[in-house]
Design a protein around this nucleic acid. Structure first.
Lengths: 296, 296
DNA sequence: AAATCGCTCTTCATTTTTGTAGAACAACAC
DNA sequence: GTGTTGTTCTACAAAAATGAAGAGCGATTT
């Protein structure tokens, strides 16, 4: 009485033998040796205390007990098939759900176009801004965040860029008024600034906290226009350091302003990072993003 | 990519680890060693191409994929439980379905009482006379038959008794008229016979085929009465040889009449004979039946 | 009547799986 | 701090399952 039905795989063998009518035919279907098939049936019979097949030289003929059990064995088979199918589905590429600050889309749209061209089978779903925490709850796969603090240690966190800012002016401005030497030296200088409802205003606020309203000669809603104004000598303005490198006319008054540094992070839920398509995307995205500029 | 989900037992392990949260706790539940549990999970992950658990020093934490798969694994578990339960039910003693000639019940009722007293958990179901063939279709488990021919070779056939018959008379009859020497020597003799609607009449017909109607002096509907008539010398009559041994007054005219020999068979379907309660019954019944007499 | 085919069973060497024992590590209690 | 508990790993030896090859046996075909 050691009825120990723990080897569930034996019902796979049972079904094959039942359907084929012989252990030899079953062994061919199952891809295992015939003696093994016979041994598994012996084991199943021992486990159930039943005689499942009538053996003779022309094959294995199911007994009444086996016929009774057959439909139940099929149920098991169906359940395992569903399990396997679902497991298979989980390995297949799915839509990558990504969340990012509002300004993000404008800046890196090209990157997504490029990626989609190279990987046409990987789709994206841009989910409206949600908290970082929600990543671990599975509401999104990837989040782009500009804050430095990573609240949830279970998330994979990849710093893809540190945006640094400095105060720039033109040669003409320098000739006329000179450059301030530090952020405590703004008296008598003139500034241009950038403001937009969709963009975090910490740059603008940093300026207004340090200069009087009449020192700000103009406020732009477009970065390029503001840069043009700086170039033409209308005032000093905050520009991303790497972006400024492409504009020879811009000259930094002094070094990067640490208080304005912001890390750009890619946060990925570990579950998502296991998915090959997510890995592929991150690998593609991170270096290219580092080379891009945005205002946030 | 050798996704070969053939070891169904691994979902048993999967469920235990999922529920316990650690391979060690799971190993205790399952009664197998912890490294084995961990290895089975590794194997399942390899088979499904999924990471099912996040390993660390405090246990195995299910991933999202594992959580998705869990309900399906439970389905498999439920199906195997149903299978095991059904298999278990098939091993438990069931009613023995028995079919026999009409006269049978009267003759061996005591045997059933005795058996039931000794095996109170084994029940019987007397099914109305059906053909032998129906045994193999599973309509009954055991059949008692008196014919010699066993049509279906797949049935287990046990000859439990050969009933032989001879013509008996009393000393007084012998003194008055002498005994016939053979069945061709019935002229001038007188006979008694037995007839009953519920009993096959081959004995009676054998007699009427060989003697004239006026030679039969009396017909009884009760065997004991007929035997008493023979004893008193009223005529000769057919009596079961073994039954006659108990009645010293009865004398055989000549040897057993072969044409009247009948084998009593116990036919058992192989499926039924595998059931322990059926085996027990047959073992009990066969020798006792051989010691009993009946008219059929 | 002989040959062939499709089975099952047995044996034995090989491969695979399992268990045991112990190291290493984090969390927690005292 | 220190010890204890609960966990995962890694070896390595032991046990078990597997496969290959071949004997034997009926039924069927030639």
């Amino acid at each position: 009485m050691k009825s120990d039905f723990s080897n569930w795989s034996d019902v796979r063998i049972f079904l094959a033998v039942f359907r084929q009518g012989s252990t030899l035919a079953a062994s061919r279907i199952l891809g295992i040796a015939q003696p093994t098939v016979a041994r598994r049936i012996d084991a199943l019979e021992a486990a159930t205390n039943l005689t499942l097949f009538e053996r003779d030289t022309r094959g294995f003929k199911p007994t009444h007990a086996a016929r009774d059990l057959f439909p139940l064995a099929q149920e098991i088979e169906a359940a395992t098939a569903a399990f396997a199918k679902s497991a298979q589905a989980l390995t297949e590429p799915r839509t990558i759900r990504i969340t990012a600050p509002g300004t993000f889309a404008d800046c890196v749209l090209d990157l997504f176009s490029d990626f989609s061209a190279a990987n046409p089978n990987i789709a994206f779903d841009f989910v409206p801004s949600i908290r970082v925490l929600d990543l671990s709850k599975g509401e999104a796969d990837i989040a782009v965040r500009v804050t430095a603090d990573v609240s949830d240690g279970s998330l994979i966190c990849r710093k893809i860029r540190t945006a640094k800012w400095a105060l720039f002016g033109s040669q003409r401005y320098a000739d006329e008024r000179g450059f301030p030497k530090s952020e405590d030296d703004f008296r008598g200088h003139r500034f241009v600034t950038f403001e937009h409802a969709d963009v975090p205003d910490y740059l603008h606020r940093w300026l207004t906290d340090r200069v009087t309203a009449d020192q700000i000669v103009q406020s732009f809603r477009d970065v390029d226009l503001m840069q043009a104004a700086i170039r033409s000598g209308q005032g000093l303005g905050l520009v991303n350091i790497r972006q400024a490198q492409f504009d020879a006319a811009l000259m930094a008054c002094f070094g990067p302003i640490d208080a304005l540094s912001r890390s750009h992070m890619l946060l990925i839920s570990p579950d998502a990072y296991r998915r090959p398509e997510v890995k592929t995307f991150v690998k593609f995205f991170a270096p290219r993003y580092a080379a891009t500029f945005d205002q946030s």
